[in-house]
Design a binder for these strands. Sequence first.
DNA 1: TATGAATGAGACTTCATTCAT
DNA 2: CATGAATGAAGTCTCATTCAT
Lengths: 188, 188, 188, 188
Amino acid sequence: MRDGSKTKELITATALRLFVEKGITETTIRDIAGAAGVAEGTLYCHYDSKDALAWDLFIANYLAFAGELDRVQEERLTVKTKLEAMIHKFCQFFDEDQVMFSYLLLSQHAQLKKVTPEMTTPVSVLLDVVAAGIARDEIPGQEPQAATAMVLGVVLQVAVFKVYGRIQPSLTSLADQLTAACWRVLEV
Amino acid sequence: MRDGSKTKELITATALRLFVEKGITETTIRDIAGAAGVAEGTLYCHYDSKDALAWDLFIANYLAFAGELDRVQEERLTVKTKLEAMIHKFCQFFDEDQVMFSYLLLSQHAQLKKVTPEMTTPVSVLLDVVAAGIARDEIPGQEPQAATAMVLGVVLQVAVFKVYGRIQPSLTSLADQLTAACWRVLEV
Amino acid sequence: MRDGSKTKELITATALRLFVEKGITETTIRDIAGAAGVAEGTLYCHYDSKDALAWDLFIANYLAFAGELDRVQEERLTVKTKLEAMIHKFCQFFDEDQVMFSYLLLSQHAQLKKVTPEMTTPVSVLLDVVAAGIARDEIPGQEPQAATAMVLGVVLQVAVFKVYGRIQPSLTSLADQLTAACWRVLEV
Amino acid sequence: MRDGSKTKELITATALRLFVEKGITETTIRDIAGAAGVAEGTLYCHYDSKDALAWDLFIANYLAFAGELDRVQEERLTVKTKLEAMIHKFCQFFDEDQVMFSYLLLSQHAQLKKVTPEMTTPVSVLLDVVAAGIARDEIPGQEPQAATAMVLGVVLQVAVFKVYGRIQPSLTSLADQLTAACWRVLEV
DNA sequence: TATGAATGAGACTTCATTCAT
DNA sequence: CATGAATGAAGTCTCATTCAT
């Protein structure tokens, strides 16, 4: 109540958790306010609307993650090491903040309509690396979109299985295994 | 007006399309009835509730697809051919009824809470095949859940990219390529 | 299905039972049709509407009962014997058809708006007898309406208690006791 | 807008009036909100549902009235004076708040299913007094339930006739007369 | 007469949002 | 900034009634 930013963070974190637990549409303002211990109106001191909250939560973190992916790939020279670094980053993100990772995953479909093509997203970063790898012949010639999809699928579906409790070990501990698998996928 | 099953099919098909276009929660009874050209109350002649409609639509087709997957894998002897047949089936299903495939994909997360463990699902069929392959040493020793996730991810994410228009060719035409990729994934 | 009047009686009897069990508004056409084993539309072959059914059921039996009360009182000469005969009739009606008696009791309030003053009702018959008794000095001078209310209350409330299971013996076996009590009430 | 309890009282009083005028089922949320001059949703700031409103309105006042009856009977020593005091209380309640009295009367049947046996109700208070009177030989030996029903009937049916406009004087002015009649009823 | 799928008005309820305090 | 009562549009669902067969 003293520091407004504390309240905002509280609301944001609570909303994130509930969005993942119940879904965005299924989570009401009352749910969030109640779980955060603030009044319903308070939310509107920090966000214009529920949609704005969901969007902010999505896009800020989606782009930030894309930025991190981009940074780690830029620090590597070969496609193989770029891919390795990116997958490690994926796994690290998942392990450090599974709730946020899940949120990006599940809200992706709904929010993607509002993502403009010029934005740098995790997918576009991965696609650029894969496409460059093919262009530079570090990866056998193939359709970049399909190749990207397969690599992305390997990582994301393992994350989904982890969320569902089908997989026990941390993703980080599986990162090398995932990288190897992805690399084999790309070797045509 | 005479044949109730025609009306039911009309409602079902309309609902399926709208659910995929706008999302389940975002699709209203009025949307469905309006698009199907029937009265709102008519929906309740055939389904107990909107949730029941969404669930019926999901589970009937989810289980039917699982059944088809199971049938084709049973007709093959080796894990490799089983996998190949299943992936072809995946691609065929996608190409023949992309709307339904998309619906199963997007509603999976929400409806999965109501799926009981004894049900045979597409995931459980794939998992069984992979696990058996590992047990029989047709696939190198590894964690079956993780292996299943990776294979599933390859196929599903390519389907997602296809839905988003990132990929042009039909999935069926990519089936062999996907099978090869999945097999490389499993070769440790 | 062969004889229409059988179907009508079936519907009528079923409706009566459900109206008493659940209340008129709370009983749906579907309830009645389902319990009677006929289609929903069939009801409209015999009654114009649900309200018409409820009203017919009420007024026919309300007036018929009034007619019986009137008949038995006319066959007696003194107010005391008239009252005795009427109360016996009340009790007999209750014991013979508790469901119908209950229906008249509970729907009275709602249907009474449609009862016109010139109709001969159970209340008007009782009132006439009491008023005549006062006029003829067979009952001490008093306000006829209040006197009628008290007599009616004694009988009806005992019936209500019987319906609620608070009273065991049949009303008929209590008729003399009720008559005596009513008579004492009227003796100012 | 500031003081919520004012709004709640307004809604409650409006609902009470309409419930009595038209019946509970026949009164819609829109009716209540419109007559109270609030939005429809406002009702749900104060009550969980329409049923909860009807129930609260019933049980709070039903039990409060039972409490008052119990209090006045406890202040008297003999059954005769207890009965006299209770009937006066009945009449006073009716004259002071005929709408509430009518509501308790008409909703009694529907709400009684939710009344548990351990609750002290107006009927149970009266029954206890009558039963005690019989036990103490202040009233001739008889079945307490039937005796209670008759006394209750005398008072309630006069109230009903008053509601219907058949009786002009206030119930309070008739209280002594009613008490005398009830007493005669009990004298076997 | 009987059927029952279809109708559509309208009931109850939810919930994002506002605003006076 | 925070509050929370109030709002009212919109959603789901019910149900008396119709009508083609």
